[in-house]
Amino acid sequence: MPKILDQRRLVPNLHLLEVHAPEVARKCRPGQFVIIMPDERGERIPLSIADWDVERGSVTAVFLVVGTSTRKLAALKAGNEVPVFVGPLGRPSEIASFGTVVLAAGCFGIGALWPTARALKAAGNKVIAVIDAKADYLVYWKDRYQSVCDRVLFSSRDHALASKDFIPRPLEDTLKAEAPVARVIAVGCTYLMYACAQATKPLGIKTIVSLNPIMVDGTGMCGACRCTAAGKTKFACVDGPDFDAHEVDWEELFIRRKSYFDDEVRSLCRYEETELP
């Protein structure tokens, strides 16, 4: 079974997980994800690939602690094993020489977008990142972004780093200042991606988002992950996870992501009452 090499808190509620999976590492490309099952009774959950190291044979993800599965992951230690760590899954993000690309990241998306930032820079783009967090101390991997991006902006509600606004405002400002921008790539919680899509739509700038519907197998076999894009039903795990943000039926995605809200709460209560160390 795949072994955990590292599991630690990056900032409150956001953790890094590095897993020994040499075959997966060999094939990783920006924008792909893995499916992990924290223990034998666990759920299969998708996490974006935030980094990989072919020599070390490892794959890294950054996750937000929300419910039972992610709490279970946060309780793992180096040396523990997980029964399932499968990937890389999904279509890789399109990497090409676009010109100027603006990245909009928040939450676990800061990790998830990192391989894309790196690859876009290597492909000769001007790369600008707008990173959003509730507060300054919730920003991680600042140095990584600063090492490859032409410019990195921050927005946080406590206002210390830069803009105090939620991401659409600084994003709009950046798009105006950097015009012409060839594309925007937004990754993070659904609301952040939706808000970015709303901001770029009037400007007519192509915007890519990495959708995160509920999944089971992640290989196109169940249809749990279905989303509507350009009026057509798509399976996010094999047709995505990247989609054109202006084609996504956001309302449906929000609703479908909440499918099991009651069950998740029940599951979490049970976990915290009976299993949490």
């Binding site: 009774r41 666990g42 759920e43 089971v216 249809g223 749990a224 909440k258 099991y260 069950d263 998740e264």
Partner: peptide, 27 residues
Amino acid sequence: VGVYSANEYLTRVNLMRAYAFPAYDTP
């Protein structure tokens, strides 16, 4: 929400053992 493919429904119940939720995590 509530419309499944048979594959998803059966996979949740059989492979992921959702019949034993919440002892198993998949609902």
